[in-house]
Each structure stands twice: as structure tokens, then as C-alpha cells.
Design a protein around this nucleic acid. Structure first.
Lengths: 341, 341
DNA sequence: CTGAAAGCGCTTACAG
DNA sequence: CTGAAAGCGCTTACAG
């Protein structure tokens, strides 16, 4: 491809001048501008982004690190989150580098990315990458809280503990005390927070927490979230008493509903179901319509992007934003009619 | 951040040597390697991706150009497509630069991206970008066919004409001759191809094509695909005769189903519905389960990525891959019981 | 096995 | 308003 030198030569000017007509960073006379543009057009010249990035030390790209999931696809939550990030970045002129490459432990293989900053989804416990980014001086914001807690790190997260306490209160108010909780993977901070919140609600109302039966998603055991929901319900039904189930996501709820249909159990008559996450179309299309916690994944993504962009543009200080979840009541929960007090 | 020079100085070697221990492109003695690694660790050094890219003229990044959609989010089809691209790229060590930036017409603003090649979703008619990429010598593969046809361009696409002819045959075999076709936007090549296929099926069976009522999605008129389906059905019902509707996507079908429920119309008893695109969970969760054309969006994405990667790695020649759609019969279509022959 | 030097394609003070 | 030159942080023949 033609370079800035080719254009300069053809237009009979210096390459600094060519640079200036494209970047508009210093004024160039009309006639020279035209001569340069003409030459550029004839040569099919376009400025080289990489060279420019090296010179100005800025790429206008935000990295988005997705959790490694070689086999499975993006969850509804992830899709919404990505949408939020994309919209905000796009609005402010940034591009997004999507990344699900599994990470090498070999530090030799770890190269800095061509990004001005990164958003990291679902950091792991004691995530080594966090330190690396700070070493590299690359702005970082997490979606999900750092574990262990660290006040020096930017992140956005839901109010997971409160949110699940709220679900607990809602269910208790309807008379449900025996709960099957199909929680997220045990290695995720959300699953800890949500478990805690639910237990707290039971404590406050003096209901024995042992009546909550908690299961965890496991990549090894379950092919995908829907199967997790399906298998769990089939397996627990009859073995453990429960009048309500809390599903980690809509996808899990879909599996639950399928199992429940096969077993001839009526929802919400005989069993209440609630999902912690609200796929806009899915939860409305399911019969019965699913009562769920709106996590606002898109907002999480957009907020993360906003904070990151501020930092990439030089803002100092750490920002932590909590996005409140909201209970959306539809038709999958009803008062407990059983005699289990 | 520390650079290769800092490391070289601290380790007492040349920067070529440092480069070599990280790239492993030429052998370096054990002791020197260790000394360099130690120095790098102490300085928190990681190779600079941008500088490396400039030197080797390769970024290991594939660009993915999404259609501009400032307000709306990715459709189910797009999500699956992106998943396919991501998986294939990830497998082969490439990252993906997601891009929905609207394009400037000002050529001054158009800079080459830091990518080795690009996948472009839904190219427009006479898309100017296609020429630009060829000028820049950047490998390009389209998802969707170029319009006008161009045998020099790589692309992957569904067999759109045949696919909708197949749908036509299926519906005709069930006795449906009055069709409401909720087609894609009129500016998209798919919508032309699919319309043609449907008409061809009717021709072959000597059924008047004027019994097909075709509507087109329009960004200006409809807030989103679901509303398009909903509004169209409400508006056409009673005004135009039809015993079957073909919905462009599952999202559109969801809108149709909602309207139909409000109108008290039974599916498939009084109306058959079929969708051209198959969202794995959605179509199974909808009641009744949706008969649909599986477009294999993920396969389209993966194939596009494969072709692109071959080209980025120097393969010559143009590749065009057609991914066959497959009719998935569920429960939303039934024989026509009306007396309209 | 290692070093010195040119080069990748831009930007940006510094002079004029 | 324009040019000459140094610099961004790497890689890679070429020598030794």
C-alpha cells in the first residue's frame, strides 16, 4: 500500500505536510491541501493506523476481555453487556477489541494489547491479570467486583447481595420457605454475594436457612445453563422439598420449565419460579411469563465503558458504580398453597 | 511503561537479543535468556503490540464490520454470527475488532484499521467500502452476497433464493396460497433473493403470485423487528387475505404471535406461521413451537472467519461458500382448512 | 549465539 | 504556512 512518503513525493511536499492535511493539526494552505489530497487519491493512500498509534501512543480502542468459553456461546447477559459497551464506545469514537483468547501462563507469551484500556468481564478470584494491567499502566475497569475487595480498582457491579435478599423477601412474603436455588458457578463472586443475600433475608425473618437448597453451575457437569436447570430440577424433585425455585438466569429457567412441564407440575400453582436476570424477549415469551430480576446488563456495560473512557482520556481517581437490579413481576410466582410451615 | 531498551540496558545486552528471547525467533543461550527475563520481570516489561505490529506488518486482528445500528442492539442472527467468528478466530489465535462506527464520507477521516483483514456483515448495494479495502490490499470477506454480483469477491451466504422457494413449496403443499410475507428491509440483498425464491415456487406450481403480500421492514417505521411483526399483523388482518405468514426472523414472529393472541386467532388452526431464522432457544420456548428455517448464522460466521484467515495468511484465489438453510418443522404450521382455492 | 544499524509509517517540536 | 529531523518501540537481514 502507498505510504505517506509516496504521497509526499508525488505531491512535491514533505511528509510532515501530508500528515498535517490528514490530521488537520496544523493549517495547510488550500492549494497544497488539494495537491496532497489529489496525490493521495491517485495512489489509493490511507493513513496507517498502526504507525499512527505508535507515534501518538493511542489506539482509540477499548479491549473487552470475555471469560474463556471455548465451546459455549455468549449468554444473554453477555450479549446485552457487549451491546452496552459497544454503544457507549461507538458514541465516543472508540472501537472494541473482543477477546476470549485463553490466557497463557507463560509471561513470555503475554503481550500488551493494542488498546488504550480494558474492560474485564467476571474477573476471577485473585485474578493475576489485574496486577499486570496496573504494571502496564493500562486503565482497567471490571464488570463484577474484584475479589478480594480492593478499593483502588474501578468496577461496576449489581447490588448482588441486596438483590437476592429482595428476592428472598418476596418469596417469603408469598409463604415460600423451601427454596431450590440454582446459583451461578461457585468460583464467581456473584454466586457468593447472592447466596449471602438470600441467607440474610431468611435470618432477618427467622426462617431456618437450611430450608434453602443451593446448587452451583459447573462447566464440567452441565453442557449449558439450560441443561443445568433441567437436570437440577429432575434430580431434586422428590428428594428435597421446595415450593419455589430461583434460577440464576433465564436460560436456566428455560430448563426448569421444560422439566416441570414433563413432570406435569403447574406453574405458578404448584411451584413458583423466579429468574435473576431478564432477557427482554425471552422472559415475556415463555409461558407463563417469567418473574425476574432485571440486572440491566446493558447499563452495566455502558457504565463500564463510560468510566473506562474517562480514564483513557486521563481522568484520575477510581470509580465504582453499583447498578441496582429491579424486580419485574410477571406470572410465574404465586402464594404458597402447600401446608409446609 | 518499560520498553525493550530499558530491558536491554538492565540486562546488559542489545535490544535485538531481548527481542529474540521474547519472540524465540533465534536461539539465545540459557544464561542470557534468564538474565533478560529477570530484567523484564523487574521492570514490568511486556512487548508493545503496536510497535511489533508496525515492524512485522501484521496485527493478528480480524475486523468485523457490523451494520450501523446506533439505537438498536444486535439481533439474534448477528449474535450467532459474531459467536461463529469469535470461535474460529480465537481458535486460530486471532482477535476480533468489533466495529459499528458509522462511516464518514470524508475520505480524510477514513483511516486503515489495525487489522489484517475484515469481515463485513450485510454489505449495502454498491458498497463503496469494498473498493476501498481492495485499494488498501486488505483481505475482505462478506457475509451476504455483493450487489451487484462480483466474482472477484469472497463471501459466504445462505442459499436465500432456494431457501424461500422451499418455504413456498412447503406452504403450498399444505394448501396455503394466500401468504403474508414480512420480509427484511428492501435495501438488503437477502430480501430481494428471498422474494424471488418465493415467487418462483408459486410460478412453478402455477399459483398467482399476487396472492403473496410482501411487506418490508423499515428502520424509520418500526422501532424494532418485534414491533414490525406486531404492527404488520394488526394492520393487515382483515384487509388482506392470508392463511400463512412468513416472518423474516424469530423476533418478527414473536410480534406476530403477540398480535395473533390479542386477536384470538389460533395457531396453527387458523393461521400458519414460519420464521426464516432459528434462534435456538427462542423458537422452542414460544408456544406453539415455531417452525423455522435454520440459517446457521454461527456457521456463516465461522466459515467467513476461516476464509479470511486463509487470505490473511497469504492464500490466493477467491472463495465463495454457500451455507444451506434447513427447514426445522415444529408446530406452528398446519394444513389450510379454509375454503379459499 | 550476539550486536549494530536500518527500517516499519507515522507525528511533532524546532526552525525558518 | 512548510521542511528537516528525531522519535515512537519493535524486528530483521547482515556481520562476526
Amino acid at each position: 500500500m502507498a505510504t505517506i512518503n509516496d504521497v509526499a513525493r508525488l505531491a512535491g511536499v514533505s511528509k510532515g505536510t501530508v500528515s498535517s492535511v490528514f490530521s488537520k493539526k496544523r493549517p495547510i494552505s488550500r492549494e497544497v491541501t488539494e495537491r496532497v489530497l489529489e496525490a493521495a487519491k491517485n495512489l489509493g493512500y490511507f493513513p496507517n493506523h498502526v504507525a499512527r498509534s505508535l507515534a501518538i501512543k493511542k489506539t482509540m480502542i477499548a479491549g473487552l476481555k470475555m471469560p474463556v468459553s471455548r465451546d459455549s456461546s455468549m449468554s444473554g447477559f453477555e450479549v446485552q453487556m457487549v451491546n452496552g459497551v459497544m454503544k457507549e464506545c461507538s458514541k465516543q469514537g472508540y472501537r472494541v477489541l473482543l477477546d476470549t483468547l485463553p490466557e497463557h501462563d507463560d509471561p513470555t507469551q503475554f503481550s500488551s494489547d493494542p488498546v488504550d484500556g480494558v474492560i474485564m468481564l467476571n474477573p476471577r478470584k485473585h485474578d493475576k491479570r489485574i496486577l499486570r494491567y496496573s504494571q502496564m499502566d493500562i486503565p482497567l475497569v471490571l464488570v463484577g467486583r474484584p475479589d478480594p475487595p480492593d478499593e483502588s480498582i474501578c468496577y461496576v457491579d449489581n447490588n448482588n447481595t441486596e438483590l437476592s435478599a429482595q428476592v428472598g423477601d418476596y418469596l417469603l412474603a408469598k409463604g415460600h420457605k423451601d427454596i431450590l436455588f440454582l446459583n451461578a458457578g461457585s468460583d464467581m463472586t456473584v454466586s457468593l454475594d447472592r447466596r449471602r443475600g438470600l441467607f440474610e433475608a431468611f435470618h432477618r425473618q427467622s426462617v431456618a436457612t437450611k430450608r434453602i437448597h443451593v446448587l452451583n453451575y459447573s462447566r464440567a457437569e452441565h453442557r449449558n445453563p439450560t441443561e443445568y436447570g433441567y437436570m437440577s430440577l429432575r434430580r431434586m424433585h422428590g428428594n428435597v422439598p421446595f415450593t419455589a425455585v430461583i434460577a440464576d438466569t433465564d436460560q436456566v429457567a428455560v430448563g426448569v420449565l421444560r422439566a416441570v412441564a414433563e413432570l406435569g407440575i403447574d406453574i405458578p400453582g404448584q411451584l413458583s419460579v423466579i429468574a435473576l436476570s431478564n432477557d427482554a424477549t425471552l422472559s415475556q415469551v415463555i409461558t407463563p411469563q417469567l418473574t425476574s430480576m432485571e440486572l440491566s446488563a446493558e447499563t452495566l456495560g455502558a457504565e463500564a465503558a463510560k468510566i473506562l473512557i474517562e480514564k483513557m482520556e486521563g481522568a484520575k481517581g477510581v470509580h465504582q458504580r453499583i447498578v441496582d437490579a429491579k424486580l419485574v413481576i410477571r406470572s410465574s410466582c404465586a402464594p404458597n398453597s402447600a401446608q409446609n410451615d
